Amino acid sequence: MEELTGTILRGESYEPVRGRLVVEDGRIEAVEETATESTDIVLPAFVNAHTHVGDSVAKEAAVGLSLDEAVAPPESVKHRRLAAADRSDLVAAMRRTLRLMRRTGTVTCLDFRENGTDGASALREAAAPLAVDPFIFGSDDPSVLDVADGYGASGANDAEFADQRAACERRGVPFAIHAGEPDATDIHPALDLDPDLLVHMVHAEAEHLERVAAGSVPIAVCPRANAVLGVGDPPIRELLDHTTVALGTDNVMLNGPSMFREMADAANRFDVTAREVLRMATAAGAEIAGLDCGVIAPGRRAALVVLDGDSDNLADSVDPVRAVVRRATALDIKRVVV
């Protein structure tokens, strides 16, 4: 049994509770209000809802390029670099990124992994020795589902994905697809595939949001990456008003996979509350992937981040939730409990 004390951000409302959290056999046994002198802040570990960890072999390679030049298959900088990468170098680079995620409080990422079965297997290999377990959305042929956890489509304007969608349905695994990143033309075709997750939705309009709400389709947004590529800002307030919205960092070659940076950017630039942003960075991604984390409550998996509330950065903060979302950095982490 292990006991954590301090200010605990409890439940789906992230209510700050002064007290203790008891962990036994990897699960949260109890959250109790009690007197404590600890200044620690305990929050759920992060779930990064959209990544491309394979891009770890090409950091900064696409900054300053257009969306098509940077990432569009098959001739973009991204795909040329991936094709040229030696497998051992690719695995090593992805392992470094996953290790960084772990150190900065992320316990899993919902990763779109290129290069079919070989690509998904390489990511499994990269993650094997680490305490980070990526949820892999595979690519190419439906046979990738023998290795991956679901299928991740590049976009409805890029190719036909009916076979892959049907394969996901047969196996009972999620089908995800990029939509509405460069413009709105691929959103309705993406929705026609009955996806389990939409990514980006920068150019979502009222008619799209009505369909999203009717189908309860969750959305992963990546505002920092959208800004780097110059495609616009997702309408996060409107998306939240219609469905579950999760936060991701997108391509590693464009941004580091820091959920602290992503939360601060979202909180400072969009019409959202700190609690909404924290939920986007934790519980929302966990729900999308069917993971038992993202919320501090008895019976849930103990995937937690412990911050030093008395650090030079966080000391004297009057609102712990806002402090976590807007101010905290990796330097404030005392430990990650998984």
Rank of each mutant, 00 (worst) to 15 (best):
N313E: 14
I219H: 07
D140W: 09
P298D: 00
L90E: 05
T5R: 13
G299P: 15
D140L: 04
N251W: 05
P195N: 03
D89F: 01
T97W: 04
H208R: 11
A153W: 11
G309A: 03
T39K: 15
R327F: 00
H203L: 01
T243M: 09
L82S: 13
S121N: 06
K59Q: 12
A267Y: 13
E169L: 07
L65F: 06
R237A: 14
S13Q: 11
V132P: 15
I177M: 06
C293Q: 09
A126L: 07
L240W: 12
A30V: 00
V321P: 10
V272E: 10
L21I: 07
A330M: 03
D55N: 12
P74V: 02
R102V: 15
P74Y: 06
R211H: 07
V228N: 08
G19W: 04
E2H: 11
A286T: 10
T249Q: 02
S38P: 13
A206V: 09
I28P: 15
R279F: 07
A286R: 05
R87L: 11
A83P: 05
V23T: 10
R327D: 11
R165P: 09
A122V: 01
R275W: 00
S258Y: 01
E160I: 05
S317D: 10
L240E: 12
T39G: 12
A315W: 11
D194M: 01
I288Q: 14
D250Y: 00
L304P: 15
L197M: 02
P218F: 14
S56W: 06
A45R: 06
L229V: 02
D196M: 00
R124G: 09
G138W: 03
D118A: 13
V173D: 13
A284C: 10
G64V: 04
D163T: 12
V31I: 11
D271K: 04
P218Y: 15
A156F: 09
G294H: 02
D196W: 00
P129Y: 11
R102T: 12
P257D: 15
